[in-house]
Simulated assay, not measured.
Amino acid sequence: MTFGKLITTAAMAVALCAPGIASAETFRLSSETNENSSRTQGAERFAELLDEASGGDMTVKVFPNAVLTGGDQLKQGEMLARGSLDFSVTSAITISTLVPEMSAFSLPYLFSGYDEVDAAVNGPAGEEMARIMEEHDLKLLAWGESGFRELTNSKRPIRTPEDLAGLKIRVAGPMFIDVMSELGANPQQIQWTETFSALQQGVVDGQENPIGAVIIPQRVYEVQKYITNWHYSYDPAFLMMSLAKWEALDPEQQEMIQTAATEAMDWQKELTREQTEEGIQLLKDEGMEVYDPTPEELEAFAEAAKPAFDLWADKVGRDLVELFTQTPES
């Protein structure tokens, strides 16, 4: 299920169709993953929907692989806040250096499944995160999904925390350094755009990422032999916009953008979950050894990671973490 990438070459043009829009405008959207990932495909879907809704008066050019930030995905949020970029489809991990509260999503074993995830992003926790984003000059338009992060490596099957001892694992940020250290691994923080070559050259032994959104489209299976489906951390994707540019739009433009964003990210989340479900067999077909831990083994991982959970729950705020654990009835 793919959609063609919308590429526009005109920088500005006179608008003739949509009422209330004085001139046609081309926006730039940055995605740090490649064209095959569901995140970038969600961005392209947004571009198509917005172009259609505006009669061609608001178009979006999608730039994958964080090319607008020189391959540094961590700069996307900063550039967006300054107004140097218009849109970004990114993840909680990527934005957490700018918005530390986003680290709450990544707490180890915070969620046990999709029902808890959906309740969080569609409830008070998601609303609070959108409010916090605005304090950083970012407009959170819609939630999508990267997914639960699974562990791959080139050395051996991982069934217990002890199996991680000494393995060099690529991680995306400070929380994951603490988590992997507690689990006995040797964490290495590396930009995602540099990770494949680091795995290929043996600079690191493994990495952790969602199956559907990253491991398969980024062809991680070409340089990794083992995967453990331990669901230890969840990473949402989301579409965000420069708050200043959002506030400069008229209500009609805002409505079109919001509607297109919601529809595109709902589609992106569904696609990601389909790709994840189907991806296990693909990884087996590609020669990976897939291991699904027992409930007892998962509990052992969670217990080993608990010191890191407590440390980071205190950093992001226990009140905020409590919002993530509320059920719809509570």
Rank of each mutant, 00 (worst) to 15 (best):
L6N: 13
T40F: 08
E277I: 03
G287D: 08
T294D: 07
A248P: 07
L243P: 05
P295C: 11
D314S: 09
P161Y: 10
A213H: 06
V316H: 02
P210V: 02
E35G: 05
F63H: 13
S181Y: 02
N209F: 10
H231N: 15
L249P: 00
S112G: 14
V316I: 11
S38M: 08
Q281A: 15
E48P: 00
V117Q: 08
D137I: 01
E145T: 06
M180Y: 13
P295K: 08
G71H: 08
P19S: 13
S146D: 14
E194W: 02
I169K: 03
Y109P: 07
L283R: 00
Y114Q: 13
A10V: 07
G71M: 12
Q191V: 11
D205W: 04
G147I: 05
P108D: 03
E299R: 12
P295W: 05
T228V: 10
P251V: 02
A24F: 00
A304M: 04
E255K: 13
S30G: 07
T325W: 01
L68P: 04
K306C: 01
F105C: 06
G123I: 02
Q254F: 02
Q189C: 05
K306W: 08
D250L: 04
S30C: 10
D163K: 10
V117F: 11
T262W: 03
G113N: 15
Q268H: 06
A260T: 08
I93C: 06
F301Y: 06
S103L: 09
E297P: 09
K5D: 09
F111N: 01
T33K: 13
I177M: 11
Y291H: 09
L29C: 14
K315M: 06
T195I: 07
M79C: 02
A130N: 11
V62T: 13
Q218L: 09
V67M: 13
E303N: 04
V121N: 07
P295L: 09
D163Y: 07
M256E: 03
E247W: 00
G144L: 04
I211C: 04
P157K: 11
V290D: 09
F46S: 05
Q253L: 02
M180V: 02
T59N: 06
M102R: 04
M265Q: 13
A237R: 01
R39V: 06
S154N: 13
K75T: 12
K139A: 07
E44Q: 15
S112T: 15
A13I: 01
F238Q: 05
T90E: 11
I280H: 10
A22T: 15
F3T: 15
K139T: 10
F196D: 03
M241A: 03
S146E: 14
G147W: 02
E52T: 08
R318M: 05
S37M: 11
Q224T: 14
K5L: 13
P210L: 01
L68N: 07
A264P: 00
W230E: 04
D292N: 15
F46Y: 11
D86L: 03
V223L: 06
S54L: 04
Q188G: 00
E145N: 09
I95C: 04
L98C: 02
E252C: 04
A13P: 00
E35I: 14
N186D: 14
P157A: 12
N209C: 08
A264L: 03
H136R: 14
G212M: 12
V171P: 02
W267Q: 01
G4M: 06
I169R: 02
T26Y: 00
T69H: 09
E78W: 07
G317T: 03
V290H: 10
V171E: 10
T26F: 01
T272P: 02
V203D: 12
